[in-house]
Simulated assay, not measured.
Amino acid sequence: MRRLLPPRLRGDAPVVPVVRLSGVIGAVTPLRPGMSLAGVARILDRAFGMRGAKAVAIIINSPGGSPVQSHQIHQRIRQLASEKKLPVFMFVEDVAASGGYMIACAGDEIFCDPSSIVGSIGVVGGSFGFQGLIEKIGIERRLYTSGKNKAMLDPFLPENPDDVARLKSLQYEIHTMFIDLVKRCRGAKLRGDEDELFSGAYWTGQRSIDLGLSDAIGDLRSVLRARFGDKVKMPVVAQPRGLLSGLLGRRGAGMTLAGLGDAASTAPEELMSALEARAIWARFGF
């Protein structure tokens, strides 16, 4: 009877579930869902709850995004690791930058490729100013608010120095939280000047090891076989795919039948989301 069970349930070999976390964090449109806690919680629960698991391996490939979603995913990984008493191995693919690196810090060990991009411990925000354009084409801006700061950083109004100062204050608070998290997770492993480490700069995988942001060069298969033996099982835990998402492919993941009728109306939003995501990846050469 035991032979009829899947290999990972027989106890013949150690099991290390593998989870892939990829994409911009928190940027969501109906057709292009970004990475969020709601989107990954289920697969994390399944991975950490897998019978016989000796550890959990997470592949991270993200240029960052929402600091809130990044932090929540980080926290959920650490909570599950503590509850299940399982070590977490992080494997950086192309990039673990900004919020992507925040998630990577949830690993007990961080492995990367020599050419991976790692770091970018900082906060960035941007906008455009259109007030000159609308004046040139004869459009008058009419805005009605209750609350003196409600229209802060409106792109159709001249930039207000007080608004910029307030934004920088918010960014400073988020940056400080990020720095504290990295220090708490990496601890004595960190090397180098803090002004450099926390400047928002990013480095190759090898340089990130020198700075203590990563632990070693290594790929998932080689590292896990070295740690747990050649017979280690590495089942990939992925989101279940329904019929519709299977037909539409990755771009349609998360789209429901109710949302199909709105697809045309969301086209401009989808385009802007794609451009924004492309710009985030482009900051790191991808």
Rank of each mutant, 00 (worst) to 15 (best):
R2A: 10
R2Q: 08
R3D: 15
L9Q: 07
G11S: 05
A13K: 10
A13I: 02
P17I: 04
V19C: 09
L21G: 04
G23H: 03
G23M: 00
V24E: 08
I25V: 14
I25N: 07
G26D: 07
A27S: 06
R32E: 01
G34R: 00
G34E: 00
L44Q: 00
D45V: 04
D45N: 14
R46K: 09
R46W: 06
G49D: 11
R51G: 10
G52V: 02
I58A: 09
I59L: 13
I59K: 06
I60H: 01
G65N: 12
S66P: 05
S66M: 01
V68F: 01
Q69R: 14
H71N: 11
H71M: 12
Q75M: 05
R78F: 06
A81H: 12
S82E: 02
L86Y: 02
V88L: 15
F89K: 06
M90Q: 04
A96N: 07
A97C: 09
G100N: 09
Y101F: 15
C105H: 07
C105G: 04
A106E: 01
G107S: 01
D108V: 00
E109K: 13
C112Y: 08
D113S: 05
D113G: 00
P114N: 10
S116K: 03
V118G: 05
V118P: 05
V118Q: 11
V124K: 10
F128V: 14
F130C: 12
F130L: 14
Q131D: 15
E135Q: 13
K136Q: 12
K136A: 14
I137R: 14
G138N: 06
I139C: 11
R142F: 09
L143Q: 07
Y144T: 14
S146W: 14
S146A: 15
N149P: 02
N149C: 07
L153K: 09
P155K: 04
P161R: 07
D163C: 04
V164S: 09
A165G: 05
R166Y: 10
S169R: 12
L170W: 08
Y172V: 02
I174R: 02
H175G: 04
H175R: 10
H175M: 04
M177S: 10
F178H: 13
I179Q: 12
L181F: 08
R186Q: 08
G187D: 01
A188I: 00
K189E: 06
L190G: 02
R191Y: 02
G192T: 10
D195I: 01
G200L: 00
G200H: 08
Y202D: 08
G205A: 11
L211G: 13
L211A: 07
G212R: 03
G218Y: 05
R221G: 01
S222P: 00
A226F: 04
F228H: 12
G229T: 03
V236P: 06
V236S: 14
V237R: 08
V237I: 14
A238E: 11
G242F: 02
G242M: 08
L243M: 14
L244A: 07
L247K: 14
L248R: 10
L248Q: 11
G249Q: 14
G249M: 11
M255L: 15
T256D: 07
G261L: 06
S265V: 00
S265Q: 03
T266I: 01
L271K: 04
M272L: 13
A274L: 03
A277W: 01
R278S: 15
A279L: 04
W281C: 11
A282Y: 00
F284C: 04
